[in-house]
Amino acid sequence: MIEGIPLHYFLVLSTLMFFIGVYGFIVRKNLITILMSIELILNSVNINFVAFNKFLYPDQLQGMFFTIFVVAIAAAEASVAIAIIINIYRRIGNINVEEIAELKH
């Protein structure tokens, strides 16, 4: 419990962050910026986990551990995604998501 700051503040903050991430995911064309948007979304979720843990179940650490695992998975995801992006860039010289349509045909 933190003095003077209710749970809602954190939740509203994380919601805003989440939808900003969604916006970025939809409008951005560069694969790396899309990856950044995903990081934003993951972070907002992390804030949620931690805030719930802190405010509702302070006698346990589940939210925190979940966050740690999410961070680890995000790291794994980022490494694989960047490997894929670099590979794509090598192949077609471009990482614009709208032009990567080779599997379509």
């Binding site: 939740l11 939808f19 509702l56 179940y57 302070p58």
Partner: peptide, 21 residues
């Protein structure tokens, strides 16, 4: 779309009464 989503989420968060343990 995202504004509607944010609005829906935030309004439901604000309406909900969280009970601490």
């Amino acid at each position: 779309v995202t504004a509607i989503g944010a609005f829906v989420s935030i309004s439901s968060i604000l309406q909900h009464n969280f009970v601490p343990a």
